[in-house]
Write a protein that binds this DNA or RNA. Structure first.
Lengths: 155, 155
DNA sequence: ATCGAGAACTTAGGCCACCTAAGCTTAGGT
DNA sequence: ACCTAAGCTTAGGTGGCCTAAGTTCTCGAT
């Protein structure tokens, strides 16, 4: 029970600053790992894309962004050879966004790096404490998205 | 000890999504409270500004942004009548960014709203658990900024 | 069978929040 | 009196979103 209330920043500042630090860190390491064209926003695709392919609508909804924003992202990833758009056999309007071979490779690299960063974070505050905090954030996010559905128009 | 490991998103996603939700929420409530010109980025000033006034350099460094970025922000807040730039009596090059009367008023409103949001978050996951998580994040942020100093050029 | 509502996606255009590079003014040691 | 450096601003550019307005296709109702 670590309610040893030190004065702290408010939750918004904590979240925003940590987000920024994490993203900068991830980005730098991706570049260092040879993924020079990687950008932080690409994670909005790679975080949710399914092995069989995902529809744009799905991705946009999960990433809580609008369709055009997601479409641009996919354009970018397609240019980089990470994903490709295939016609969806079950619906002529839709397309399936699929990872390419290079895409899978990049995913593995990214996941490894993310795991490294998480491990370092855990070292800084204690791994049990870190995991508890992560679980709490996860629960909070679930609760918030349940009640509000998120800011996205792509529901 | 809530190490009841549910599958969870990775820390970067948790942070980023919660940040986004928090900021959207805060922004909406500020608008609802009559601060129609409020923007999320204004918090980078209001979070750190001192009662006696702060220098631009200080603010930029604490908010981890570049001087020009902070300068623009202050421009904006000055236009809105929230802060004003005064010459720093102790250094002719510097200026003190000070809150105006309207600025203090807005700050009070914002703080109230932030406290409300925090309270709601605490309700969602349990207030002790929430506070523990916040303390952990605070400690993590402190540890990270200690070792890396942050991405800012304005140190 | 065809027609209209609506779903899936794209295109066009815009805004905000940053950034880097390059200036300008004042401070302060030598 | 310099020269370097500090404090700040201006100029210009980019990424990451957004809204609005298309296009193409689906599917249920007539």
């Amino acid at each position: 029970m670590s309610t040893a209330s030190t004065q702290r920043l408010h939750i918004g500042q904590l979240l925003a600053q940590l987000t920024r630090l994490f993203q900068t860190e991830l980005f730098e390491r991706l570049v260092a790992a040879g993924l020079e064209d990687a950008r932080v926003s690409h994670t909005h695709v790679t975080a949710y894309i399914k092995a069989e392919g995902s529809r744009l609508t799905e991705l946009a909804s999960q990433a809580r962004m609008t369709l055009p924003a997601m479409s641009e992202l996919v354009d970018d990833l397609e240019r980089l050879g990470i994903v490709e758009r295939r016609p969806d056999p079950s619906d002529g309007r839709a397309k399936l966004i699929c990872l390419t071979k290079a895409g899978w490779e990049a995913m593995r690299t990214a996941r490894r790096i993310i795991a490294e960063i998480e491990a370092e974070y855990a070292d800084h505050v204690g791994s049990e404490r870190f995991e508890d905090a992560a679980q709490t954030l996860n629960a909070l996010l679930a609760a918030l998205t349940a009640t509000k559905g998120g800011p996205s128009k792509a529901e």
